[in-house]
Amino acid sequence: MKRFAFFPGCLIPARYPAMEFAIRQVLPRLGIEPVDLPGASCCPDPIYFKSKDKVSWLSVAARNLALAEAQGLDVFTNCSGCTATLSESYHLLKDDKLRARVNERLARIGMEYRGTSRVRHIVTLLRDVAGYDTVAATVTRPLTGLKVAIHYGCHLLKPSKIMQVDDPNNPTVMEELVKAVGAEPVRHGNWYLCCGKACQVEDLPAKMMRDLLATVNEKQADILGLICPTCFSQFDMGQLKVAKQFDEDFHTPAVYYLQLLAFAQGIPYDDLGFGDQRIKPEVLRNFEEVPATTES
């Protein structure tokens, strides 16, 4: 087992525990052991708190990274926002002056940031630590013929020099991971567009979503595959709002990739929390095995 500190963030453990459940089910099957980080806080978020005070934002991020350093482990995140904060902090804190400023604050609580733990997004663990073939080998229920419109989201890929995940102009990691579960990745016309959740006005993200979902519909995708809980909320609850606002037939269920993989590894649909979604990926039920014995 390869061990990595697990930084769960706020949204997934609090709002989407089904995603955390899936992660904890999936990773050990791929030879990866998530190690909890007691005392971890919000990353803090790269949209709201960062916009208040970057030095405080860096200081709290450095504290979270120092928790992983104390365990001697690299840290992985399951949320693109957390990845953005922690990766950018790791990058910025290579600057000696800034690190000294942050460490002055950390000294108040008897901690020090050293910069010894690298930050990984969970998809890079699947790609680089486990490998696509290993992921595919754990699939017991191939999702043959399922068309998955991929939404990369922004912070998984950009800024590429800092995130170091994939080529933001032509990424492949999500396509390969979707193929690994036997499904068919679909790149829709507006695949590059942001989900709009971080924008602090209403009409602008709604128009973006309308255009994005229109190209998803053109491709007749069965589900939207994504890797960020913020994008997920925008495509689950948010999709219904946009559909109503523009009187459009938008209804493509969003599925967090690790839940899709858990399902393909044989975990029952009903155990994966899909029923809690606003737009439920009922199409997945078609892939559930017919029970060998007659139902009571």
């Binding site: 453990p13 609090a14 525990p17 089904a18 955390e20 459940f21 904890r24 909890d36 007691p38 005392g39 971890a40 806080s41 919000c42 005070d53 030095v55 405080s56 200081s59 709290v60 504290r63 604050r105 950390l106 108040r108 609580i109 929390g273």
Partner: peptide, 20 residues
């Protein structure tokens, strides 16, 4: 989902870090 309660955050430590 068989998950433990949220692990507590030491808010005092966070507040100390936020002081300029």
């Amino acid at each position: 989902f068989g998950l433990p309660p949220l692990s507590p955050v030491p808010v005092d430590e966070i507040k100390q870090l936020l002081e300029p």
